[in-house]
Design a protein around this nucleic acid. Structure first.
Lengths: 230, 230
DNA sequence: CGCGTCCTTGACACATATCAAGCCAAGTGG
DNA sequence: CCACTTGGCTTGATATGTGTCAAGGACGCG
C-alpha cells in the first residue's frame, strides 16, 4: 500500500483526477517498487498482469527480434503510465534506463477501478492518444529521415521532454543530460551506434552542439538544429 | 442525422456498446459522408474539429515532411475510428485509398457524449490501446527490418487485416486484393517504390507469392513467408 | 489505336552497416 | 599514487543494401 499524499508525481500522473477517497482506494491496491538501472520490469508476452505509474527515473519500451535486433518504441518519464490494461499481454519489454521507482498495480484490480471511475479512465484515454500521436511521428522519422535528421530530431525532442534537472532551465533547456548511452540512442533512432556517433561528431564539428561529457548535451544553435531535423 | 439501425458496421464499431436510446442520441449528432478515392478527409494541423467512424472503404493516415516525403502511419478499415478527440488537432492527414464512406461527428459534441457515456469511452480506450500496440510493432519494422522482411511482414499483416472480400475465405485468406498501389506500399514500409517492386518480383520468382494482377496477391507458402518476415 | 498512368527492370551512386582498431574515463587493486 | 583493466565511445576502411536516375513495358481508358 502506497502513501499517495507524499507521491512525487501526485498532480501530474493519471491519479491527479482522483479525490481523496478515490485516491485512498487506489492507493490500497498499489505499492511502490524500485527498479535498478538495466533491470527489466516487464517482458514481452509476459503473463504477469501488472500496470504501473512511473515515480522516478526513465524506462524504455523495447521490441526485440529473435536475432537480437532491438528497437526502442517508447520512453517513459515520471508521471507516465506503463502497461497494457484490459487483458492483453504487453507486446514489448519494459526496462529501466536509470535507477527508477514505480507504483505498481495488479492489472485486474486496476481495470475494475478504471471501469468504475470514468474520470480516471478518461485521463488514461488522453494519455494513450498522446502516446499514439508521438509514436506516429516517430514512425515518420524511422521510415523516411536520414541519419542526420534523426539525430537532430532526437536532440530537440529530448531537450523538450527531459524533466528539467536541478540547475537547468525548465523550459526547453539548452543544456541537458541524456539518461542513456550511445547504443540506446541508436536503438531509438533505428541506426547503428557508429552512425549515431559519427553524426554527433559532425554536429559538434559544425558548432551545432557541444558535448562536454558522454551524456551531456548543449544545443548551441537551436534554429540550425531544427533546420537539420527536416 | 444517420440511421444507425441500417449501419453496416453496427456491432463492430465503438457504437456497439450503446443501447437504442444512446444510439439515437449519437445518431442525431452524426451524418454519413462519401469520400472518393484519393480525396483527403482531414489535413494535418487541420482546425476542423471532427471525428468519424469508417463505414466502407480504406483510408490512410499520412505524415508528410516539407520536402514531400511521406510516411503512412496507419490504415483504417470499416468499423475503425478516425480522429483526435479532446481538443488536439490531428497531427496527420487522412486520405481515402478507395471510395469510402464515413460517419462524421462534430468533435466537441462527440467529446461531450463520450464524457457522459463511460462504456463508450472505454471502448474508445480499448481501440486506442490496440492502435498504439500496432503502431509500436510497426516501428520495429521501420527501424530495424530489411526490405525483404518489410515486404513479407506487410503481406502477412494484410492477409489478416484486410476485410474478407466476397469469394475469399474469411480467416487469414491466402488470396486477397490490396486496396492500394505500389507507391503506397512503399510509403507504408518506408521504402522506395523500386525497392518494393524488386522484392515482390523476387518473392514471386522464389515461389513465395503469386501476383495474378497488379493488386491481387496469393500467398503460396505462408510458412516460408513468415520465416522471411523475421 | 494512342495516350497516360502505373509498374518493372537495369545501371549506378551513395548512405549506412559492418568489421576492426584505438581511445578515453572511471574504477580497481597493488 | 600509479599501473592495469574494463566498458563505452570514437574513428577508419570497406562492404552492401537501398536509393536514384533512366528507360522500357503493361494495362486501362478515351
Amino acid at each position: 500500500m502506497s502513501d499517495c499524499s507524499s507521491c512525487g508525481v501526485r498532480g501530474r500522473a493519471i491519479c491527479a483526477s482522483l479525490d481523496a477517497r478515490e485516491l485512498a482506494e487506489l492507493g490500497r491496491m498499489g505499492h511502490r517498487q524500485r527498479v535498478g538501472a538495466g533491470q527489466t520490469l516487464l517482458w514481452e508476452g509476459d503473463e504477469v498482469p501488472l500496470v504501473a505509474n512511473v515515480l522516478k527515473g526513465v524506462l524504455k519500451l523495447v521490441v526485440a527480434a529473435a536475432d537480437g535486433r532491438e528497437q526502442i518504441v517508447g520512453i517513459v518519464f515520471p508521471s507516465d503510465f506503463i502497461g497494457r490494461p484490459f487483458g492483453k499481454e504487453s507486446p514489448y519489454r519494459v526496462t529501466a534506463m536509470t535507477d527508477a521507482e514505480v507504483c505498481i498495480y495488479n492489472r485486474n484490480s486496476f481495470d475494475t477501478f478504471a471501469g468504475s471511475h470514468p474520470h480516471f479512465q478518461q485521463k488514461l484515454l488522453h494519455r494513450t492518444l498522446d502516446e499514439l500521436d508521438r509514436a506516429r511521428c516517430w514512425m515518420m522519422l524511422l521510415g523516411r529521415k536520414s541519419a542526420a535528421e534523426r539525430v537532430a530530431s532526437f536532440l530537440l525532442e529530448m531537450s523538450e521532454r527531459l524533466p528539467a534537472e536541478a540547475g537547468y532551465a525548465a523550459e526547453s533547456p539548452t543544456r541537458f543530460e541524456l539518461p542513456f548511452g550511445r547504443q540506446q540512442i541508436a536503438d531509438l533512432l533505428g541506426l547503428t551506434i557508429e552512425t549515431t556517433c559519427r553524426q554527433l561528431t559532425r554536429m559538434r564539428a559544425e558548432g551545432l552542439v557541444d558535448l562536454p561529457s558522454r551524456r551531456e548535451v548543449v544545443i548551441r544553435d537551436r534554429q540550425a538544429m531544427a533546420r537539420v531535423a527536416g
